[in-house]
Design a protein around this nucleic acid. Structure first.
Lengths: 341, 341
DNA sequence: CTGAAAGCGCTTACAG
DNA sequence: CTGAAAGCGCTTACAG
């Protein structure tokens, strides 16, 4: 790593290191034209690449954002990451990525490493247990913030830091109302882990809205926040409701708290010979890009995932938005999967 | 960012900075037990987090890997990134991610930034124009490698550096043979950009294998390496072949050079009222996870995407593998989308 | 085993 | 406008 150094450039241009620094790395004090040209020429000839580590040390700011997601291969997260990338590029920030496989130990370790790398901000995407962090993490974030680090959460807010917060509960209730308005009367729910706020909020919004219509879910089951979680939950649901292919009559309408789970559910039912929406209907939440080419087309609550990622970067970068919470509305979209005959 | 410093810890423990460093950051010279304990206690009490930037500067090694992909929201890439993440975590490396939106200027800029950040290695995923880099990039990589940086490419190899290389051509020919063996006789191809090696190799492998069977594609069209690229190519293909719903007779079997394009193609045909595999058959390449729940199930060449990402990390980390090329075989998988009546 | 000191490559007051 | 020098927070020969 014995790369060309700023001193090398300075020497070749016949100026001091300080001057070379000012020419090359945008300072307010702009040296004279002739000098500047010489320095630039020297840098080009030598192939000088500034050492960002050294700059960071000297400036005490790295220009790096830390981003933590549960699973980068999950379309929900990869869409958010795409938004983060776009916004980061615009702001000339780099992004350090960690995909934790939903392991909270890995998550904690990633936070520590990002802090060690002096990321200017850390964005935490994905639900956590009831909005609580372990004590360790909390203490670490506290010190990080004291030292000027910024924390942004996507999903449920923490006790501190900024948050980009989808209106899970409200949007789910709107979804329920839309489904009732469409003629559905029999409902069931595939929920997520009880410890995860996002899952709980969505479930509650849906069930409470049903209640206001005088309706109650026939059954509720739950599973992990994954395709397979939806798959197995749907099997249990089918058993509980004794779903049969071609039974006739109005199908039960199931709400799965994420699209990924809904897709898993449909797969499970297909294995059982059940057809959506004839034998059973289903709606999800998120509107992940995958849905675009999924059959049957899935009713859902659309979230602007890339924009959510971009907003998180904005919050991470504006020092005045320290404890801001930005609410993101969802948009109900009814498609084939909840179509009544 | 005025965080707790190693000197703070040393002072509190009543030792020198050097000793504190040796205790905390794994040195071969292990200080005495009593001293070590005092240092560790001081670090804990103060909440010391080592400054990775300063460590990097002093050690001239950052423990950071740079990863560049075309589009993080594309399941092909997000699967690879997942593999990279897993392997990087095992090796205690951090990953700096750039998603370029297929913009080669952005790609070049990302490489520069990664080099500035002194990434220990840079992994370039995604096809490039015929294996050639622009002159600038090539020169930059040259210096980077001279300074100890490592370069790994996923896809077609460059003139230098290590590569993880799927056997595109061979696997495509195997796919063609399998389809012929399954009874198909009429073929068409949806190719990618002519400048991209991966696209060309897959197309050639397929067409040449057909040739060995005495067959020739009825039509070839091409499009961008995206879902929409496949969509529009499929529209042109349908027009060229005058595809009609329910025409009867053996359907034409189309090979799309990526699954993502194949999915777009199926969507286009669905809009035209065409049913797969009745009116037209199709096979893709990659076996992205999305396929698992796609209807109809798509025939394809399965690539171990996560493993590919992990192998790239391995190559990036083993100094002896400097110009190694690791070949990754594909596995033909025939599913519903090419099923003959 | 432990410490004083140089050095990693930059930035930035402080003088001139 | 330009330069000498201190400082950012660590690591690591080199002595002791």
């Amino acid at each position: 790593m014995a790369a060309v150094t700023l001193q090398d450039v300075a020497t070749r241009a016949g100026v001091s290191q300080a001057t070379a620094s000012r020419v090359l790395n945008g300072s307010s004090r702009i040296p004279g034209e002739g000098v500047a040209d010489r320095v630039r020429a020297a840098a080009r000839e030598l192939g000088y690449v500034p050492n960002a580590q050294a700059q960071a040390l000297a400036r005490s700011s790295t220009g790096v954002l830390g981003l933590i997601v549960h699973d980068i291969a999950d379309p929900y997260f990869s869409s958010i990451v795409r938004g983060v990338q776009t916004a980061a590029r615009t702001a000339c920030k780099q992004v350090l990525l960690a995909s934790t496989d939903r392991d909270f130990d890995v998550e904690r370790a990633s936070v520590s490493t990002f802090i060690a790398h002096r990321a200017d901000a850390i964005v935490l995407a994905g639900s956590r247990q009831s909005g609580h962090l372990d004590r360790d993490l909390e203490a670490e974030f506290g010190r990080y913030r004291d030292n000027g680090g910024r924390v942004v959460v996507i999903g449920q807010p923490l006790a501190f830091g900024a948050a980009v917060e989808p209106e899970n509960q409200f949007a789910s209730s709107e979804l329920a109302e839309a489904l009732v308005a469409a003629g559905h009367r029999q409902f069931a729910v595939i929920g997520g882990p009880a410890s995860i706020r996002t899952a709980v909020d969505r479930r509650n919004g849906f069930v409470e809205a049903l209640g206001r219509c005088g309706l109650t879910p026939l059954v509720e089951v739950s599973g992990a926040f994954t395709r397979d979680g939806g798959f197995s939950a749907a099997q249990r649901l089918a058993a509980a409701l004794q779903l049969q292919p071609g039974l006739g009559g109005p199908p039960v309408c199931v709400f799965a708290v994420t699209d990924v789970m809904a897709i898993g559910a449909i797969a499970a039912w297909r294995e059982l010979g059940l057809t959506v929406p004839r034998d059973v209907c289903i709606a999800g939440f998120d509107d992940i890009p995958t849905l675009r080419d999924h059959t049957p087309s899935l009713s859902t609550v659309a979230l602007p995932l890339e924009e959510i990622g971009a907003r998180a970067v904005d919050l991470a970068l504006s020092p005045d938005a320290d404890d801001l919470r930005e609410r993101i509305p969802g948009r109900v979209v009814l498609r084939d999967s909840t179509r009544l005959p």
